[in-house]
């Protein structure tokens, strides 16, 4: 065997040689203790950010959409419903009132006279107040 001094020493103290070669495994220790856990934590937080925090934001949006759907339904069925009731009621009333239009002059004259009395009565009432 014709090994140089460093090789001889390395062969004799193999364990010590490996520890020194790997710089006492300080880098590996740091990786294990800090770097890898931090990366894992980062991935966890990324999931948290996308799912939980942004999830809450989307939940707020969905609640708003739900309210919008609710008010659309109310608009369509309740408010339009009321408007339609008024419209249809008018239509029905008009059908009845149309019959006043008899085309006979003395009917109209009677209605005018009745109207005059009504008007006078209302004016009287207002003056008293």
């Amino acid at each position: 065997m014709n090994l140089s001094a460093p090789d001889r020493l390395a062969a004799r103290f193999q364990a010590a040689y490996r520890i020194l070669l790997n710089k006492y495994y300080v880098d590996e220790l740091y990786d294990l203790l800090w770097v890898e856990p931090t990366k894992k934590l980062g991935l966890l937080l990324d999931w948290f950010d996308r799912t939980v925090i942004d999830g809450l934001v989307h939940a707020v949006a969905q609640i708003a959409e739900l309210f919008a759907a609710g008010s659309t339904w109310t608009e369509k069925h309740v408010i339009y419903g009321c408007v339609n009731v008024i419209g249809y009621g008018n239509h029905l009333a008009a059908r009845q009132w149309r019959q006043l239009q008899s085309g006979m002059v003395h009917h109209y004259a009677a209605i005018i006279v009745a109207g005059l009395f009504l008007l006078a009565a209302i004016i009287q009432l207002i003056m008293q107040l």
Partner: peptide, 10 residues
């Protein structure tokens, strides 16, 4: 801390 750790893995 949150921002920095998140930035680390982006």
């Amino acid at each position: 801390l949150y921002g920095a750790i998140m930035a680390l893995i982006q």
